[in-house]
Amino acid sequence: MKTSGVWILWLIFNLLFLLSTRNPVYLLIVLTGLLLSGYRMTRKNQRASWLKNNLRFLLTMVLLSALINALFTHNGRTVLFSFPQHWLLIGGNITLESVVYGTINGLTIGALYLLFTIINLALSVKQLTRLIPRAFHPIAMTVTIALTFFPSIQQRAREIKEAQMIRGNRMKKISDWLPLFIPLLVTSLEKSILLSESMTARGFHIPSRLKNSGLPFLGLLSALFFSFSGWILHLFSYPLLISALLYFVGGALVMATFLLSSQQTRITHFQKEVWHSADILMGIFLSVLILLWILFTINKLLPSLTYSPYPALLSPPFQIIGLLLSAVTFIPLLLSKHD
């Protein structure tokens, strides 16, 4: 798995799965998969510290979430102990169920965080920048310039800092920043003038008012409108089919807008991403899985994978399909042998 498209599909599937299950067994499987893949992907000398940092974050999240939930919600049957009723907000029963619920919340948050950490590890900055749609190429250009200038500005900041320290500036207070920051700002702004001139000389003077720019605009606005109303209808528990339809229309409008307005701009391709056969197969597999998932959820064909400790604590249910779906997190681990 090297192409960004496959990684994004993997991310979408995992997000869908994580957000619909609250079963601690599946969550733990997913977390193991994520931790192992992340461990594999970091450099050899940083592996131990990576694992330690992430486990620490996970533990903090679980503890914090369990604590807050236990203090603020007083549902559940198994009472551990209770605070006097007149205490503001935290007065009432502290129940085992709310501790468990908080723990599950913490596990979900930790898994979400880890998921995105792995995407950051797997995709290079270049690949991430390329994910900005072509319709927004001036924005992407700005990002690229910022990323390119970042190391040289840091280098210059270090030089100016050294020069100031030789002249007796201790760099301790905020007011000592002034002789560092102002030369940095002035020289960088001078560079930006040069850069803009050379961009114009190379023909990059964006026709700032594109032809029929109203159409994409209308598309995006109505996409926002459709998805927002779909969400609101979903919140007021209208049938899922209506909001799914509205979401679909919104998403399709966004896609269509991107396609249409990207056709107006011509770009050069430099170092294209190569799709190997394994990536193509993986991409097809994941997209079919996502489509099936969405169809099954709308038609309520899938057994419910969710789990709630309320009103009374029971052991979480255990389904084969859930196990199989949570094993999708292990795919990068299996494929990385071939890379």
């Binding site: 001036p138 700005t142 910022a146 990323l147 960088s188 560079k191 930006s192 803009s196 700032s208 605009f217």
Partner: peptide, 26 residues
């Protein structure tokens, strides 16, 4: 995305792109 698009078609030209890129890097 909508705000970006609005800004992009109204003011963003090569001067502002260079200026913003450098300032963001700082």
């Amino acid at each position: 995305l909508i705000v970006f698009y609005e800004i992009q078609i109204s003011i963003l030209d090569s001067k502002i792109i260079a200026f913003l890129g450098v300032l963001i890097a700082i």
